[in-house]
Simulated assay, not measured.
Amino acid sequence: MRTWAAPGVRADPAERERRRRSILARRNRDALTAWLSAEEGLRMWQAGRLVPDRITAALDMNGLEGPQVDIDCGTTEPDVDHWELGIKYPTWEQFLALCRLTATPISFFFREPSDLRASETTLVYHLPAKVLRELDRTPVTAFTREAIAATLAGRDYTPVPVQTTLW
């Protein structure tokens, strides 16, 4: 990626980010249909097979976060956070926007997360403990039935706040 706007002139951070996204999109233009056709992806999406943890992984791999991600996916804050938690299901159009934004193939989002923990691999010798704890978090592997049903029926769905208790 070029960090120069012209000979001797550095590109500003916003321009570098725009170019980075442009390069990713160009490089992965066919990624939307890689391994799965759009029709097969649509069938799997309709069956509720989308894996929330894969949304988190795709966003993390691209360093994407914040309200701009929601805007780029055609939704409002905090919907993408709710997708990652599995309590709100994205529409097909929002899902395709997510694929384009992350330059990730459709099939990536339907694969189950690995059962192998980072701390059980040689990464334990290469990564700080804080990073290992994040990698070892329990993945969210499915959306709630209510969220999937509401999205497929075309209804706006407001998820119920998740209650968590510590012991």
Rank of each mutant, 00 (worst) to 15 (best):
R10Y: 10
N28D: 03
A153Q: 06
L24F: 06
E15F: 02
R26D: 12
L123W: 13
V80K: 02
A47Y: 04
P139R: 00
V131E: 15
H82C: 03
W92F: 14
R145N: 06
P159S: 04
D70T: 02
N62W: 02
T164H: 01
W83Y: 14
Q68H: 12
A58F: 13
S119H: 05
L135Q: 03
R27K: 08
P159N: 09
Q46E: 15
V140S: 05
T164C: 01
R155V: 03
S119E: 08
E112T: 08
T141F: 00
E39M: 00
S37A: 00
L152S: 09
R100N: 07
R137C: 15
A142N: 01
A153G: 04
I148C: 03
E39L: 01
F143V: 01
S22C: 04
P113Q: 11
A150E: 11
P139F: 02
T138S: 10
A153P: 12
A6F: 13
L64D: 09
Y125T: 11
L96T: 06
R26M: 10
E40G: 03
E17V: 01
W167H: 06
L101K: 05
E17I: 01
A31R: 00
F143P: 12
R18V: 08
T158W: 02
P139Y: 04
T141G: 00
R18P: 05
A25V: 03
G86I: 11
T138G: 02
R100A: 10
D72S: 05
P113I: 08
A47D: 13
Y89G: 09
I55Q: 07
S119R: 09
A6L: 12
T165W: 10
P105K: 00
G66W: 09
E40W: 02
R21Q: 12
M44E: 05
T91C: 07
R54D: 14
L116G: 02
T76C: 03
N62Q: 14
H126K: 12
R21T: 06
F110L: 03
I23F: 05
L116K: 07
P161L: 00
